[in-house]
Computed example of a mutant assay.
Amino acid sequence: MKTIVITHYGQAKEVFETIETPMPVLSSGEILVKVMATSVNPIDYKIRGGYLPHLIPAFPAVLHGDVAGVVAQVGPDEQRFKVGDRVYGCIGGFLDRSGALGEFAKGDSTLFARMPKNLDFAQAAALPLVGITAYQTVFEKGNIQPGQRVLIYGAAGGVGHIAVQLARIAGAEVFATVSSQEKADIVRALGAHHTIDYTRTSIEDMIAQYTNGEGFDMVIDMVGNDNLLNSFTLTKVRGTIVTILAWTTLDISLLHQKALSFHVVHMITPFLFNDTTGQQQLGSTLDHITALVEAGQVKPHIDRIYPFAQIAAAHEYAESGGITGKVVIAQEGGL
């Protein structure tokens, strides 16, 4: 089968190549999926660029965790899926788990869920990693309660735009930071009650204008770096911070002084520590997301769709900054 691989780190236009690889052999509990679409997540281009060498699969490496497609074969003892089922999931693209950039991809069936009936393959491929991350952020770590003031940093991004919708479902008053009117329009359409242009509004003004000087009940940080430190100031006493990007060194004294609750979400943790139970929960979380999508409460926002032949261009655009929602790669006449 044809597979897109990298054999070394580097710029997108320099490293991707298409080669012939053997068809995957299934073990017990695995399924083989005819790949119809995948999407670009930051982890994909960071691995490709050599910034996360501890996560790189063996060369030649097949990247991309997100996948949507049709079950082509099931392994021994498989009970959840049958040939012909339309499924989606986040299967790997890191460590020893091959990704989705091939005509076919295999993965443990517990990592998959049935696709929402009201989405096409491109839309479904936009959801797994960001949907699971947002779900863990809002419902599991954040445990948002009705009426809470929740500020979401990076609200128009991949995880952020799903978190906006889930926080609205949870009953929060949703405040979304944006950097343009286009992004404000998008996140308002997705359910944000308020949009805040962080390029024009100071931290102090956010607190004064939107929380009567108290601070937000919760800040969800999708950006990291200085934004994570700002979250300590923006959150009220005994409030909660949930971040998906804690790769930084910070002075946490304010966290201590305000007795804040601090949580980190890292969707791939179950893979890093061979946590079988955690991996099984990923598919279960997608089942919940499927139900929300089919009920019309959650929908992915796609910025651009590329064919597989333009994988390099898709990566370049995704890492250029400023995109809204997700960049998707979908089949167009095969690989």
Rank of each mutant, 00 (worst) to 15 (best):
T249H: 06
Y317H: 11
L250M: 15
A309C: 15
D66L: 08
D275E: 06
E204R: 12
F175T: 14
E332D: 10
V174A: 11
A163V: 00
S320Q: 14
Y306E: 01
G158C: 06
R238Q: 15
T235K: 04
I302S: 10
T243E: 15
L260T: 00
T18K: 14
F121W: 04
G321I: 15
S320F: 04
T38G: 01
E332F: 01
M267Q: 07
S28N: 09
P57Y: 07
Q145D: 03
G191E: 10
Q123M: 07
R80P: 04
T243W: 03
T195G: 00
E319I: 08
A155M: 05
G93Y: 07
I252M: 15
Y45H: 14
D287T: 12
L260H: 01
A295E: 12
P300V: 13
Q11V: 11
A330Y: 03
G50S: 12
Q279F: 02
G283F: 04
F232K: 05
L190G: 00
Q11R: 15
T21Q: 09
V67H: 00
P22D: 13
V83I: 14
G69L: 02
T201L: 07
D197I: 06
I169T: 13
A295T: 03
A122Q: 03
L101H: 05
D66K: 03
N230W: 11
Y317E: 10
I4A: 03
G333V: 01
N212T: 04
T38I: 01
Q11T: 11
V150R: 12
Q165K: 15
D226W: 08
M36A: 11
H194L: 13
L234C: 10
L190T: 04
L166R: 10
V187P: 07
D77R: 14
H315I: 01
T235F: 02
I302Y: 06
T243M: 11
Q209L: 15
E182M: 09
A155F: 03
G224H: 03
A189H: 09
I289H: 05
L63P: 02
H266W: 13
L151A: 02
Q148N: 08
I302D: 07
I203G: 09
A124I: 00
K46Q: 09
D96S: 07
I4K: 04
R188M: 14
M23F: 06
K46S: 10
V237R: 13
A189F: 02
G283L: 05
A126G: 06
G69E: 01
M23D: 00
T276Y: 09
L52D: 12
A68D: 01
F139E: 11
P57H: 11
S109F: 07
T18A: 15
N212Q: 14
R114Q: 04
L129T: 08
F308G: 06
V178A: 00
I323W: 05
A156T: 04
M23L: 12
T38P: 00
G50H: 07
R188W: 12
P57W: 13
